[in-house]
């Protein structure tokens, strides 16, 4: 579904991503790990459309990805993903309201009623029904990310992009979120890309793991070479043993330093 064809990204002399070519099929769950500043978030932004490739092409169903965020790609950021001036219910209902054509982005009458039913069903699913009338400022961090996911999924995107969505959460709550996310991914048949700095999360959550790292390194010009995907691992068939082997292999790279 998504073809990444010799993609480069650089800012002036600073090469961030270097010659990446990969293909992702519909329904895959790709987790992306790597040292900070290695370009994994940049790569996510290329998919999102907030940044454009310097060379090469990113294709969705054979067509170049539109260089502007759109409803086919949902996003959940680490924070600020929900609208603080809307209640939980309104935040979810904002998805159908903003998806329609028009100037105001408000729903009326029957459209509003059906959007409300749909939003309530989604809140039921992520466990936020009791908080439907609360504002995001009174929610805990985990509840706020549940809301952000619910809101993104209500727009029915084909691709869900997650930029360190659970980075600010407690480990216990993070586990609950993993369960929720896996469940939604399986039942909705989504294609998911997730950036994480938590290696364990990267290994356990998805169906495919990408490790971003620099293959070449010039100590006199640290920005001359960009990162590539140095490991592309299918995770579903992976045994505990190969997991440990991979971890050891990664130990020699800059990832764990």
């Amino acid at each position: 579904m998504i073809e990444i064809d010799r993609v480069w990204k650089s800012y002036g002399d600073n090469t961030v991503l270097e010659d990446i070519s990969l293909t992702v099929k519909e329904g895959e769950f790709v987790t992306m790990v790597g040292a900070s500043g290695c370009g994994k978030s940049t790569f996510l932004n290329l998919l999102l459309g907030t940044q454009t490739v310097s060379r090469g092409e990113l294709r969705l169903d054979g067509k170049p990805i539109v260089a502007e965020p759109g409803p086919d790609r949902g996003i959940v950021f680490q924070q600020y993903s929900v609208f603080p001036h809307m209640t939980v219910l309104d935040n979810v209902m904002a998805a159908p309201a903003l998806a329609q054509k028009g100037i105001t982005g408000h729903l009326f009458g029957a459209a509003r009623a059906s959007a409300k039913r749909e939003a309530e069903a989604m809140l039921e699913r992520v466990g936020l029904v009791a908080s439907a009338q609360q504002y995001p400022s009174s929610l805990s961090g985990g509840m706020r990310q549940r809301l952000a996911i619910a809101q993104a999924l209500t727009a029915k995107p084909r691709i869900l992009l997650l930029d360190e969505p659970f980075g600010a959460l407690d480990p216990g709550i993070r586990n609950d979120m993993h369960v929720l996310l896996r469940d939604l991914w399986r039942s909705l048949g989504l294609t998911v890309f997730m950036v994480t700095h938590d290696l364990k999360e990267g290994f356990s959550l998805g169906s495919r793991l990408w490790v971003f790292d620099k293959r070449r390194h010039d100590p006199h010009a640290p920005n001359a070479y960009g990162a590539q995907v140095t490991y592309d691992l299918p995770l579903s068939k992976m045994s505990e043993e190969s997991y440990m082997q991979t971890l050891q292999g990664l130990g020699s790279s800059s990832l764990l330093n």
């Binding site: 950021f77 903003l98 100037i103 105001t104």
Partner: peptide, 27 residues
């Protein structure tokens, strides 16, 4: 206003006037 919100609104399908009226103006 965090750019995350403006990007989020676009991924929900919002056009410019909807972002102005529903996301920016009320805040």
């Amino acid at each position: 206003i965090p750019s995350e919100q403006i990007i989020k609104a676009q991924t929900l399908g919002a056009n410019t006037s909807q972002i102005l009226l529903r996301i920016i103006l009320p805040q």
